[in-house]
């Protein structure tokens, strides 16, 4: 008799992932899809594929998918969830998409307490367009539009999304996780599960920020990139739970 030790999640299709070697988008896809399957909501799920390297996630997640304009995923998610409250709606957004062009839509969806799950990929760069500076780019980090490195006087400081959302009472669950080693991946899975469970229990807006790699645009090998997450990103972006509780309804 054969024992199955590991198999691809039913939450993913058979399409070949389009991500670069060493990119951790793929790991996060796996975690999201496993969470949908484990919570038995894959058949009720609607994912929002945002503009960025993950735009083709509509081919990868094995559920209904809607592709949204750049930055507008949380507004699109609001429309879907309000129209179909029984659906389990999640957005999957990069840092250009969520933290730059779409920050207004994301903050207001959180502030209204939309019952949504937001998976936010912070890779400190614009991946899809070829490595430009993102709002999350670290100080001193060289990108194609900050060739001398990010300078706080010119570009401001990298934006800490989880911290900002932890100030919004109706964002009931805000956690930053990483996927740079197996232990981190396990913790990330727990956070993603929780973010979906909250929605199933109609508790409100959950956001999981995932520190992710972009070896190609960082100019690193996959292993160097994982190390850079651990040493540089985690030093500026602490991995922790920022909020986990009922929405604070008080004024």
């Amino acid at each position: 008799m054969k024992t199955i030790v590991y198999q691809k999640s039913k939450g993913l299709t058979d399409a070949q992932l389009s991500y670069c070697p060493g990119c951790t988008h793929g790991i996060v896809h796996k975690l999201v899809s496993e969470a949908l399957v484990e919570l038995d909501v894959l058949d009720k799920a609607v994912g929002i594929a945002s503009v960025g390297c993950s735009v083709l996630s509509y081919n990868f997640f094995n559920c209904d998918m809607v592709q949204a304009a750049h930055g507008r995923a949380c507004a699109v998610a609001t429309g879907i969830k309000r129209a179909r409250p029984e659906a389990i709606v999640f957005s999957y957004q990069g840092d250009g998409d969520l933290a730059s062009i779409g920050i207004a839509e994301t903050i207001h969806a959180a502030n209204r307490g939309e019952n949504l799950t937001v998976i936010f990929i912070n890779n400190a760069i614009y991946g899809m367009t070829g490595g430009q500076m993102a709002p999350t780019t670290l100080l001193g980090q060289k990108t194609t539009t900050s060739p001398l490195g990010r300078d706080s006087k010119l570009h401001g400081l990298p934006i800490r999304i989880a911290e900002i959302f932890s100030e919004i009472p109706r964002a009931v669950f805000v956690e930053r996780v990483s996927v740079h080693n197996p232990r981190a991946v396990r913790n990330a899975k727990k956070a993603i599960l929780k973010a979906f469970r909250n929605q199933i229990e109609a508790r409100g807006f959950s956001l999981v920020e995932v520190l992710s790699t972009c070896p190609v645009n960082w100019g690193m090998t996959p292993v160097e990139a994982l190390r850079w997450v651990e040493q540089e990103m985690m030093a500026y972006y602490p991995v922790k739970t920022f909020r986990d509780g009922d929405a604070d309804e008080k004024a």
Partner: peptide
């Protein structure tokens, strides 16, 4: 039925996009 005052027209039209995608008359 659903009424949402959006944070901008950009958000409003994208909420419409979402609700329409989900099959609602919006």
């Amino acid at each position: 039925k659903v009424f949402v005052q959006a944070e901008s027209e950009t958000a409003a039209i994208n909420m419409v996009y979402g609700a329409a995608a989900a099959g609602a008359r919006t």
